[in-house]
């Protein structure tokens, strides 16, 4: 479950503006929708706001991850000419939007049945022990937040976690610990299966559709 929104928290900024670079992106996104239907751009705009805040947070001390302040939601409502409450509704409905600050690396651990059967408990324990925090908490240095999520659709490679935009699959307590180490040093670990298999094919390599696998350059 995501962190609850707090209206009067002192971290809520007074105002929010998109940077030049983001303003360009916004224009492009809005242009995708027919005239009079700009409100449909509310979801991409919320995402862009979260990313912009995330970029700023990566450079701040202490660091923090992307989240959407109330001022940003109001600003988006203004841009799209819709009631602010409609933006709040969308933002609170989807779990991908963070409405309170999170760590620079938001670790979303899947604990739904397939992942759980394959040892997500161990992954959770490693995270908690190694980072010294509980679910929905953030490390003091602002680097990590861990949270529990429902199935993220990568059950074939269970157990898995999502960290910011990337999936890390086929985890063990050991590989999870490694991931945390690498990320903690601001390096980028290999995305995807941590057992070295490509996509979700058998670990020993493709067994069917061999031609196709070659064409797709996965072997």
């Amino acid at each position: 479950m995501k962190k609850p929104f707090e209206l009067h928290a002192d971290y809520q900024p007074e105002s929010f503006e998109f940077t030049k670079a983001y303003q360009k992106k916004i224009k492009d996104v809005i242009a995708l929708y027919p005239p009079g239907r700009q409100q449909s751009a509310v979801m991409p705009l919320l995402d862009l706001a979260q990313r912009q805040v995330g970029e700023e947070g990566a450079k701040a001390t202490p660091v923090y991850g992307g989240w959407i302040p109330r001022a940003a939601m109001d600003h988006i409502a203004e841009i799209l000419d819709m009631p602010a409450v409609k933006v709040y509704e969308v933002a609170t409905f989807y779990s991908m939007y963070n409405l309170a600050p999170v760590g620079k690396h938001l670790v979303q651990i899947c604990t739904t049945t397939p992942c759980w059967l394959n040892g997500s408990d161990g992954v959770v324990k490693t995270c908690k022990d190694k980072l010294g925090i509980q679910m929905n908490e953030t490390t003091e240095d602002g680097q990590f937040t861990i949270m529990e999520v429902e199935c993220l659709g990568a059950c074939v490679n269970a157990p898995m976690v999502q960290i910011n935009d990337d999936y890390y699959e086929d985890l063990t307590p050991e590989t999870m610990a490694e991931l945390i180490d690498i990320l903690g040093q601001d390096m980028k670990p290999t995305v995807g299966s941590q057992k070295g298999r490509a996509c979700s094919m058998a670990a020993s390599g493709p067994t069917v559709m061999l031609e196709g696998a070659k064409k797709a350059k996965v072997v």
Binding site: V85, K86, E89, T92, F93
Partner: peptide
């Protein structure tokens, strides 16, 4: 329009 349904 100030009322809404929040969360899910």
């Amino acid at each position: 329009p100030v009322l809404g349904q929040f969360n899910r």
